[in-house]
Design a protein around this nucleic acid. Structure first.
Lengths: 134, 134
DNA sequence: GTTATTGCAAAGGCTTTGCATTACG
DNA sequence: CGTAATGCAAAGCCTTTGCAATAAC
């Protein structure tokens, strides 16, 4: 069960005019612990929102990213996925299944020991590829 | 001027059967200091190798990656580029121009202080996004 | 009423695929 | 000869675009 009222407020607070479609998309994607692709978002929200087109999903996702409610990740292989977890953290991609999972920030400490000059760093993305041991 | 003989030998050493197209592609992509996309490789090699199709370029690039002569990177925005520099290092993507450049490994020290368990790490990709200062 | 949002379908990149042709061992 | 590599064009994703219809202010 998702609180649409809370989502609506959150959208407004971030300067996004709510609409049935936007609230439905946001309510789902902002609470998932998964790392869905645009199409997975569409597939997940469609059943409860028959009036929803792919274009609107892309539209809404980009809007959420632009307004800072969602992060867009680029995973090995060129896949683009979305991540509602805003706190800095890293990612692990299972080469076998393609699944994406979070790695806590402390797993790797990025210590600038050689100062990076001439660059305004906006974001550091760390993607670990490998295999789950069994 | 590129030494085709050396490239040919290198391909053979890595179990790749040389051909005119493969040597031409490899000779260019393995010596560039850039981070070209598949299409940029095609555009660069085509003039000196009229008998070259896009399919063969993709084919050859994937072969080089598979055999460990080339690395495939996934850059912010879902772009896939290739990097002949095999030594571990990081990458910087200029948000303005989209250009990719290398960052020395020492720029960031990745210190596993919380041991990563249950995972066979194959590769750690660090991509820094931001802007060049002027 | 005027502006913003949406759906639809078409168009656009980029990459892969299938198959006949050509080159190689 | 038999196998491997290539070219070509078509097909496949995924994503964006244009425009008319709809809904919101």
């Amino acid at each position: 069960m998702v609180e649409f009222a809370a989502v609506t407020k959150r959208l407004k607070d971030h300067g996004i005019q709510p609409s049935a479609q936007r609230v439905a998309v946001a309510a789902w994607v902002l609470q998932t612990s998964d790392h869905p692709s645009a199409d997975q978002v569409f597939a997940a929200v469609r059943p409860s929102q028959a009036m929803l087109s792919r274009a609107t999903v892309y539209n809404t996702l980009h809007l959420l990213v632009e307004k800072g409610l969602l992060r867009q990740l680029t995973i090995a292989g060129g896949r683009v996925v979305f991540d509602p977890k805003l706190e800095p953290h890293h990612h692990f991609v299972d080469d076998d299944s393609g699944e994406v999972s979070d790695l806590p920030l402390e797993t790797f400490r990025l210590t600038p020991e050689m100062p990076v000059t001439g660059i305004d760093i906006r974001e550091v993305e760390v993607v670990v590829r490998g295999r789950r041991q069994r």
